[in-house]
Computed example of a mutant assay.
Amino acid sequence: MRHLNDLSVLVTGGSRGLGLLLARQCVERGWNVTITARDQEELDRAAALLRRRAGRRGTTVAARVCDVRDKYAVRDVVARTAEDQRGLDVVLGNAGIIQVGPAEATGEEGFRGAMETMFFGALHTSLESLPHLRKSSVGGRLGLIGSVGGLLPVPHLLPYACAKSAIGALAEGLRAEQAEYGVSVTAAHPGLMRTGSHLQAEFGGDAAREYAWFATLAGMPLVTMSAPRAAERIVDAVERRRTRVVLTPAARLGATAYGMAPTLVTRANCLVARLLPDSQEKEGATVKGHGLAQDENAARPRWQSAISALNERASRRFNETARQGT
């Protein structure tokens, strides 16, 4: 497919990880991009990375602080982006958080935080963007980033799974409602990707052991997908107006199996849950992956540390750490 040129794009959660790579894909297609996130310092680093590429293509990159949990902040950033870029053609709702641990340790506040950031963040982004997308001369395109965890609930990732499941329903429902206005909505459900997101995740319960399994799984080459490749596939799907895209063979297999045999898959999940860290702790403080990665007292097998290191290298490239990537 020949790429469209000179589109106006807004990417929420665009300062690091998958969001940064989605923005980079748009820049490489010659599109004008605005990224948003909550952290000004992260945004500045991300914008600098993107502008290096944009300068060679004659496109623009803007960065604006925005907390997607605040619908008025979203309304303002959408309006300002549409004004500065003479409209909006593509919006990618990617802002999110990851909480790892048993549901009891995560507690109600953990679930509420996941829903506020991911589901309501996607809802605010969608509702504020749709009036502008309907005016697009090339047909507006909205992409909402779900997860295979929203299609197949995963133990010790339940707040994330609940929020991502709601995003999937929102995307497919909005697609049906907006079709008559020429706006397409794409639900993207990535599997595990090597973005370094384990360093930004929040861990509860037996935090050190939760970090160990999550960081290892998130870095395994045969299970995970290259993050730049995932971003390319997602932007392709949005551009081509696809309804849904599920990335990685393992994610497609798991989602299909759950749809066809939910009882069997749920029983398998029961076995998986027994292998995960057993913590009876109730609600408590969570620990960021950054702190756990730097804990020299944490005993981890050498093979586990080696696999995690693959993902930590990705984190430096995709702005997941305080160090600037390339």
Rank of each mutant, 00 (worst) to 15 (best):
P159T: 07
Q178N: 06
V183E: 05
V185D: 03
P190Q: 00
M193Q: 14
S165L: 03
G146A: 11
L199P: 00
R233Y: 06
E232P: 06
Y160E: 05
A212D: 14
A212Q: 13
P190H: 00
V246G: 05
A208R: 09
L157I: 00
V148N: 11
A230I: 05
E177F: 05
M225K: 08
R229F: 07
Q200E: 12
E172Q: 14
V148T: 13
R233M: 14
R209N: 15
G196K: 05
T256P: 07
L174D: 07
A208M: 07
L222K: 11
E239Q: 08
E180D: 13
S197F: 08
E177R: 05
T248F: 05
L247C: 12
V238C: 01
I167F: 02
L144Q: 02
A166P: 05
A176F: 07
Q200H: 14
E177P: 00
L217V: 15
L142A: 00
P155H: 04
L247H: 12
G182L: 09
G140W: 01
A169K: 11
A207G: 05
S147V: 15
R242P: 03
G205V: 01
A163R: 03
I145V: 15
P153M: 06
S197N: 11
G204Y: 12
A207F: 04
A218H: 06
M193S: 09
L157C: 12
L170C: 03
P228T: 04
P153K: 08
L247I: 12
E232T: 09
L174S: 02
V154H: 11
T224F: 01
G173P: 00
Y211P: 06
V183M: 09
A176M: 13
F214I: 12
A257Y: 10
A176K: 08
L217A: 15
L253M: 11
G168E: 05
G146Y: 03
V223D: 00
A227N: 11
G139I: 03
A250R: 11
Q178V: 15
R229L: 13
R233I: 10
L174T: 02
R252M: 02
G182T: 09
T186L: 07
L157K: 00
L152F: 13
A251L: 06
D236P: 06
T243F: 10
A218E: 04
L152W: 15
T186Y: 02
L151N: 04
C162S: 14
G173T: 03
R209H: 09
L151P: 00
